[in-house]
């Protein structure tokens, strides 16, 4: 059969579309790699040192890595237990007719832009932390971590709730039929089937926490320093994202400092992508749903 002209144009249009759509992510990776090359070749392993002082030629990014990991651990330590326990309630205890409202509420909450969390963080949270711990300033790693926990909570709840909800009812009924208490039903019949999906949800939450910028940038204090003592999160710090958000636009394009900043961005991207792809490849069918 001879293809009509419109079919040929149409086919090449859809082909171009898929090529562009799939190429963008590769393009982003390539650009970050090219622009961080100067830092990689000139500084080399020196980037993994702890002092950042461009005027003296020191480009150590350990303080930023520390900050990113620290806020991530704080955020997940709060959000995971709180989120999963709440999801257990909404999926197992709450009557089904209320579920729709809870889900809509969570969706609304997840939609609050991060800059508004930043505003709340600077007006309330950092001031509370300052007063509560009698600090000189509430702009601390802890403030960043708590704020991120609040931001990621709706995602953790709604995904865990889905995971629990997707466990077929027959398992629950069978367990209840044995006369088990709700706690035992959950532990022995429901959780084992949901644990895979919950793990995927947590990986996505992890990626989101690592990549969040605006809220953290406003409350963390933005000092490129690893706290002394090491685990004191009541001190200010810096994450990769807050460093980029504050300084990338102020740095001359093509300078070594710019390149070192881009290298940090590349590092962040590689880790976040790894978590996202891991989550979508091993825990979900990627066609089913997009989790943000």
């Amino acid at each position: 059969m001879v293809m009509s002209a419109s079919a040929r144009v149409g086919k090449s249009y859809v082909f171009m579309s898929i090529i562009i759509s799939t190429a963008i992510i590769l393009l982003i990776l390539t650009f970050l790699l090219i622009n961080s090359w100067q830092a990689i070749s000139e500084i080399g392993w020196g980037v993994f040192s702890s002092e950042w002082h461009p005027a003296a030629g020191k480009f150590g990014i350990l303080a930023m890595i520390y900050g990113s990991v620290a806020v991530m651990i704080i955020a997940l330590t709060i959000a995971i237990p709180l989120g999963i326990m709440t999801a257990v309630f909404t999926a197992e205890v709450l009557p089904a007719k209320y579920r729709f409202y809870v889900k809509s509420m969570l969706e609304l909450l997840a939609g609050i832009p991060s800059i508004i969390y930043g505003l709340i963080g600077i007006v309330f949270l950092s001031v509370w932390i300052e007063d509560f711990f009698a600090l000189q300033s509430g702009r601390t790693i802890l403030a960043g971590g708590i704020l991120l926990a609040i931001m990621v909570l709706p995602t953790v709840i709604t995904l865990s709730d889905d995971a629990l909800h997707n466990v077929p009812a027959k398992y629950r009924e069978a367990a209840r039929g044995l006369g088990l208490y709700p706690y035992e039903v959950l532990k022995s019949a429901v959780l084992p089937h949901a644990v895979n999906d919950i793990a995927g949800a947590l990986l996505l939450a992890l990626g989101r926490v690592l990549g969040e910028t605006m809220a953290v940038m406003l409350v963390i204090g933005s000092i490129d320093r690893i706290p002394v003592p090491f685990l004191n999160t009541l001190l200010p710090g810096q994450t990769i994202t807050s460093k980029l958000g504050r300084e990338i636009a102020e740095t001359a394009f093509g300078s070594l400092e710019f390149s070192a900043l881009i290298f940090m961005g590349l590092l962040l991207l590689v880790f976040v992508l790894a978590f996202t792809i891991l989550a979508q490849t091993f825990f979900y069918q990627p066609e089913q749903r997009l989790y943000e």
């Binding site: 002082h53 204090g221 000092i223």
Partner: peptide, 13 residues
């Protein structure tokens, strides 16, 4: 003009 400030607690814009 580029002196480091090891005593600093917060960096602002």
């Amino acid at each position: 003009k580029n002196a480091a400030a090891p005593g600093a607690d917060l960096v602002l814009g």
